[in-house]
């Protein structure tokens, strides 16, 4: 079993206020259903949607003192909108789950293996 992070990225100019309320509700419902499905199938480890990107803070702890700055990462145009941590037998299974998640949340999903500690 390998753990994968499925992350949902949004472009900086995506405006969610354009999305009609009933469409938004449909997406929330689809994501809830997907979460239930992967919980039942034993793939679920953890998941969370994130607060708006303006609420992000970046900590750079590589120097002597940690440097805290208003986020997001300046060099990245796209930003993380939410994620799941799942457990799957292999990449094919993770990709299949990610594809369903992508459909549910109406966004592209990046799949990355988690470095096992």
């Amino acid at each position: 079993m390998t753990q994968y992070m499925l992350s949902v990225h949004h472009a900086p100019d995506e405006d969610f206020s354009d999305i009609p309320e009933d469409e938004m509700q449909r997406i929330f419902k689809a994501v809830d259903d997907f979460n239930d499905e992967i919980r039942k199938a034993g793939h679920w480890v953890f998941a969370g949607g994130l607060k708006p990107i303006g609420d992000a803070t970046v900590v750079d702890g590589r120097g002597d003192q940690p440097i805290v700055s208003d986020g997001p990462f300046a060099e990245s145009k796209e930003y993380l909108g939410g994620f799941w941590i799942i457990e799957a037998a292999d990449l094919d299974e993770a990709l299949a789950i990610a594809a369903r998640g992508s459909k549910a949340c109406a966004g592209k999903v990046e799949v990355r293996p988690i470095d096992a500690a």
Partner: peptide
């Protein structure tokens, strides 16, 4: 190795 790409014939639907 890292992403655990499987060593098997894909499922029929894929």
């Amino acid at each position: 190795k890292h992403a655990n790409i499987p060593f098997r014939v894909p499922l029929a639907e894929d």
